[in-house]
Write a protein that binds this DNA or RNA. Structure first.
Lengths: 335, 335
DNA sequence: TTGTAGGCGTTATCAA
DNA sequence: TTGATAACGCCTACAA
């Protein structure tokens, strides 16, 4: 591959002049500029961005760490972020951090060693202090879907509590009072928030919180299924299920179907996140919309702002909204 | 951030010695080695991989270009490739190439300017010559899901023709003879291959190919829906639909449902690709499995081989297989 | 075994 | 306006 030296020799000027032409950093006489441009064309010269990065001490890249690249949720995030970042002239280096602390740390450190200019992470398995320390080390950091009080100006989250409340209130409005909640792992703040919203809605409606109706799962389809089985074995009465994400709702749905409970005729079901196939289920799944696109955009804007390229307003706390489809039965008008 | 110079000064040795300790390239006396390691710990020194890349003229990265990052298909590819590449010590730089020639070229050139060591691309919208030229320029290139005769040792594909044939033969075996085919855009080789497989199966069964039963769409849900509508408007007789990918099958399914054809009782439906939500449809979609994991693995192995790190056998042509679920009715045993 | 010095491809500084 | 020349951080002959 041609280097700047080749270009300078072909054009009969110094390397510095070529560099000036490329970056437009200072004025170059018209005829030399033409010569240089001609030489660049001729050699199909492209600046080596590695060398540029070294000289600029800036790579023009943003590292993104998510637990996994597959699946509708993270791939959606990735897709949106890549699009926005590219518009700002940055490119994306991705690393999948699996679901363990060690692996997520490794991914993050890997990206740092790659000298990304900034970091956007969806890291649920590393301690607060670890992230705080990274930020203190000087590298711009944006955390999505997790709130750390000491870093509130670096965290983009959604209001999970509000989301859980809205979902539950909708079920209440439809006449359901015995509502199962399949919650995510309670060591995760988003799972806790959604459960708290459920409790708040019940409390506001004057319904007592009943532990028998609540089962903890781990945000996966399988765990949602076994949580549903567990609840059914308890032989308690319920007319609706609030699964705090769609994957678990799917698992619950399959168990309900197997055991002969039809949805929504006998049991209503509501999910959370509105992942792609929520609308392909029969009945189509009523759920809470997780504003993935917006979160991606806000995260990118925050990163850009931290990189000093721009001043834009950033929403730090996004609002989920109800997506009504066909998996919840209205008990009131039916009666 | 600490540099190798800082480490060398703290340890009281030369930079070369530090470098030797880090890379283990030659023997270093035990006590100096200990001093260096201590200094590295103390300064939390991490080699700057940008500088390493410049010195080694090798970045340790592989560029991946896909039309989009979202969606189950490409994100699956990405996920698998990242996992494998990481095991070989490479990291991934992604770029979404949209669906236009200009955008895909831009993405590829962007990755090249980033000096990735190799390239894996899913590029359907650039001419053969462009890709040939890139390979000739010396950068290791692997092309997935597309066959270019001049580059046969760089292309990982599936046997679309065989897949189309298997799908159609299955419908024939189930007693269907009037089979609609919703094909992808015929300027794409995979769409052509699948259609050809359909024709071959019909030919082998002694059934005449009927253009009235065939409609071209563009591999999207919407286009599949309108192709299905078009066919229905033709008022021809059919008992089964072969959609040459699952997205179009989904679109067709919705139109069939709307217009009162129940699947599979009145119309059988078979797709292609086995994307994630094929199994969440009701009835669960019978389809052809696209071996995404295998393709990702083969592509990575081929890249590794080209990078000279390894000699492994590579399968260049992968075989799709039938996934029987519930969307095809057996006309023979039912009668 | 160790250190010096030159190179990787750019950009930035400073005279000219 | 231009061109040497010194960074940027690291690796690697080569010499000691």
């Amino acid at each position: 591959m041609a280097t700047i030296k080749d270009v300078s020799e072909l054009a009969g000027v110094s390397q510095a002049t070529v560099s000036r032409v490329i970056n437009g950093t200072s004025r170059v006489s018209h005829d030399k500029k033409l010569k240089v441009e001609k030489a660049i064309k001729e050699l199909a010269y492209k600046p080596n961005s590695i060398a540029q990065a070294l000289a600029f001490s800036r790579t023009g890249s943003v590292g993104i760490m998510v637990p996994e690249l597959g699946g509708p949720f993270y791939s959606g995030i990735l897709h949106n972020m890549e699009e926005h970042l590219r518009r700002f002239g940055y490119h994306v280096v991705v690393s999948a951090g699996s679901n363990t602390e060690a692996s997520q740390k490794e991914s993050i450190e890997f990206l740092i060693s790659r000298r990304v200019d900034a970091l956007i992470v969806h890291a649920q398995n590393v301690p607060d202090d670890y992230l705080i320390q990274i930020e203190e080390s000087g590298i711009p950091l944006v955390i999505i879907n997790r709130f750390i009080p000491e870093m509130k100006s670096s965290c983009i989250t959604i209001d999970n509590e509000l989301g859980g409340k809205i979902a539950t209130q909708y079920l209440l409005k439809m006449g359901h009072t015995d509502i199962v909640c399949i919650t995510g792992p309670l060591d995760k703040s988003d799972a806790r928030g959604r459960l708290q919203g459920y409790r708040n809605a019940l409390f506001d409606a004057g319904i007592e919180y009943d532990e028998v109706l609540v089962a903890e799962a781990s945000f996966t389809e399988e765990s949602g299924a076994s949580a549903m089985e567990k609840i059914i074995r308890r032989k308690c009465h319920f007319t609706a299920v609030f699964a705090t994400n769609d994957h678990m709702a799917l698992g619950a749905y399959e168990v309900l179907a197997e055991q002969g409970y039809s949805v929504p005729e006998q049991v209503s079901l509501i999910g959370f996140d509105d992942i792609l196939f929520a609308r392909y289920l029969t009945p189509k799944l009523t759920t809470m919309n997780f504003p993935i696109e917006q979160m991606s955009l806000e995260a990118v804007q925050l990163v850009i702002q931290k990189l000093g390229n721009n001043k834009c307003d950033v929403n730090f706390k996004l609002l989920p909204s109800l997506v009504v489809r066909n998996s919840v039965k209205d008990l009131l008008t039916t009666l």
